[in-house]
Design a binder for these strands. Structure first.
Lengths: 212, 212
DNA sequence: TCTCTAAGTGGACACTGTCAACATCGAGGT
DNA sequence: ACCTCGATGTTGACAGTGTCCACTTAGAGA
């Protein structure tokens, strides 16, 4: 049942247990969502006693918080990747628009590809809201939310979005896209085939475009 | 710690334990969300041994599923109440629109007023997707989702929404509103005062209106 | 009145997160 | 080259959880 095929470490010290624990916990979260990251199972897979974790994390909740950051970073990476796929045309307005839409499509694609991590990313940390932003970012150093804000700024700079409509626009866009994502992985659209899911996503994007 | 102030029942039989357990479990969910409904605490408050619950529910998960239905029903009731507050003007188009918007405002209002129940309502049942719809409805017999569909049908009937745009429109509207709700109770808009929250909700509604 | 069975109890098990006390090394100063 | 001391890992324990099994109880129907 337990994948405890550990390299039977020879030394008393582990080396980099903190990182190892986070990696294993993240894998558990990927497979089964936040509830699947159980401290004892993590240490078991690491080949270490349960209490060893407490030398590196104050509690299970705190370990989960770190995994949550990692999941957010993975989401950021997915969005950045999606934006990287965009073929820039040179038309500033069109490009800004494409990059903006890539935020949404990358977001939804990640939610469908990694539902466990996605749910973990938005597990409310219970204690703190302002979790360290840097830990939640990928290569550009931006969190998913910041990537969205950046894309919106791009729309304004390209003249596509009127500056007076910019404040608060991230909340409109985020609402629509996040709602769609949950609908697709936990809601009635769960079993929708990829093609149709993309179609719904396209319509949501159109709604955001015209309604911003 | 435990509110186990139970009426010290005299009879061996409880009378209506199933209903009592659901009520207590719902209260726990209201206070602390789905994770707060722990079987032993429920039975404790009911003044009954833990195993008594198994005569009425196959597992904790199944009890939680019933609570989930109850939470959905409460959401439906909140939406219906919001629609009941609408002052009909006689103008069919305007009324249909007002009733449609009331779905959104009722939805968001409920999420903010009862975050514990709201989270419970959308706890994915893990096993079954097609949970009994009737259990999730209130006085009109409609689930929250059905209330939304009904309001959209009203828009079409009033000529406000083009019939060819009707299919799938519920997913667009639901995405936006549900996303907003989670943003307001678990996301960065958590601490927003009521007035500003209503303002954001108004803008989301406008986005849906113009983007449907 | 007797019985059968639905409803509640008691005890146990495996599992969890967490604490306190103990064991083990390895780096840094003498 | 040694010794120490603190960071890291271990052991054992405790309370709490969901759930199984065997037992008891009492109310409804023959």
């Amino acid at each position: 049942m337990s994948h405890a095929v550990v390299p039977e470490r020879a030394t008393y010290r582990h080396g980099d247990l903190a990182r190892t624990l986070v990696e294993i916990a993240t894998e558990l979260a990927r497979e089964g969502g936040p509830d699947a990251v159980v401290l004892r199972e993590v240490t078991r897979r690491a080949g270490v006693s349960p209490n060893a974790a407490y030398r590196h994390f104050a509690s299970r909740e705190q370990l989960l918080a770190v995994v949550c950051d990692a999941a957010q970073a993975a989401l950021a990476a997915a969005i950045e990747h999606e934006q990287g796929e965009v073929e820039l045309s040179g038309d500033r307005a069109a490009d800004a628009r494409a990059l903006f839409r890539a935020v949404g499509t990358g977001y939804v694609r990640f939610a469908r590809a990694e539902p466990g991590l996605f749910r973990t990313a938005f597990r409310v940390p219970a204690d703190l809201a302002d979790r360290a932003a840097p830990a939640r970012s990928a290569v550009t150093g931006r969190t998913p939310f910041q990537l969205l804000e950046h894309a919106l700024d791009g729309l304004v700079a390209a003249g596509t979005l009127a500056p007076e409509r910019r404040p608060g626009a991230e909340f409109l866009a985020w609402s629509a896209v996040h709602g769609l994502a949950t609908l697709l992985i936990d809601g009635p659209l769960r079993a929708l085939p990829d093609a149709e899911a993309r179609e719904v996503a396209r319509r949501v994007a159109a709604m955001v475009d015209s309604g911003l």
